[in-house]
């Protein structure tokens, strides 16, 4: 199964070259992935199956509706194999996230909040969002630091 998914991902990668004419690359994926480091433009990422999530966050008031794609879809697409993902932000913030988080929860990488695209001057263009309100165990400071905004890199290890 895993090989099947990886195989499909590799096929799609071959069919759809990263960092084409879709715009500037916003996310670079490195580490244990099939086919070497890959960079993705925002429009390419929007082609991934869309996922929405409504949740509150620790840095805003009230609940918000986030739109993006599932982290595990991206990992499958790039044929990632590893236990941890090191997510890094534009301001060099970096944090290790166990891959199991993406399997256990519908963690998304959001590119829009409440219908408006996330801006780089705010928390965009990409923000790792956990389904915090759906799982009480996620309402924990040890998960809060995994909410990386201005996400710019993923290293699979």
């Amino acid at each position: 199964m895993r090989n099947g998914v990886t195989g499909l991902a590799m096929f799609m990668m071959a069919a759809m070259p990263a960092a084409a004419d879709d715009g500037p690359a916003v996310l670079r994926v490195t580490g244990n992935i099939a086919g070497g480091p890959a960079s993705f433009a925002l429009d390419t990422l929007r082609d991934l199956p869309e996922a929405t999530l409504e949740t509150s966050t620790v840095v805003t008031d009230g609940t918000h509706r986030f739109t993006g794609f599932l982290m595990r879809d991206l990992l499958d697409r790039v044929g990632a194999s590893g236990d941890h993902v090191t997510a890094s932000a534009l301001n060099d913030y970096a944090v290790d996230i166990p891959v199991s988080d993406f399997r256990d929860y519908d963690v998304i990488v959001a590119y829009a909040m409440d219908g408006a695209p996330l801006e780089r001057a705010d928390k965009g263009p990409l923000w790792i969002v956990y389904p915090r309100d759906d799982h009480t165990e996620l309402q924990d400071i040890r998960f809060d630091y995994r909410w990386v905004w201005q996400l710019s890199g993923l290293e699979i290890r």
Binding site: V59, L90, E119, R120, A121, D122, K123, Q150
Partner: peptide, 10 residues
């Protein structure tokens, strides 16, 4: 500048 703006926005 965007990063700083994002901090101020935060």
């Amino acid at each position: 500048l965007d990063i700083l703006r994002s901090r101020i926005a935060l």
